[in-house]
């Protein structure tokens, strides 16, 4: 199962990011564990400076905006 973390201080964009990832995961039938991470320490440990940011299986893949649909599909589909 894929582990996806959404990093952000709880602003609306971060919530939207988490929502659209879980929606698209459900559409694609990909099992994903989506975690919202709000602590400053966590953001620092991934070196994230602009939120929302996305970490897939401990790998930082995106930061600074709500990701587009194609990007999310890409992360979910990659082997």
């Amino acid at each position: 199962m894929r582990e996806i973390k959404v990093l952000g201080s709880g602003c609306t964009k971060c919530t939207k990011t988490a929502e659209s990832i879980s929606r698209i995961a459900a559409e694609l039938g990909v099992e994903a564990n989506i975690i919202k991470e709000t602590s400053p320490q966590a953001m620092m440990s991934y070196g994230v400076m602009s939120t929302p940011a996305v970490v897939v299986d401990e790998q930082l893949v995106h930061s600074g905006s709500i990701p587009h649909r194609e990007q999310i599909e890409g992360w979910l589909r990659q082997p």
Partner: peptide
């Protein structure tokens, strides 16, 4: 361009 909701991660990013 930078939104005030990012000031904490920016602060930590610069600091680290």
């Amino acid at each position: 361009p930078f939104c005030s909701c990012s000031s904490i991660p920016v602060f930590l990013g610069f600091t680290s």
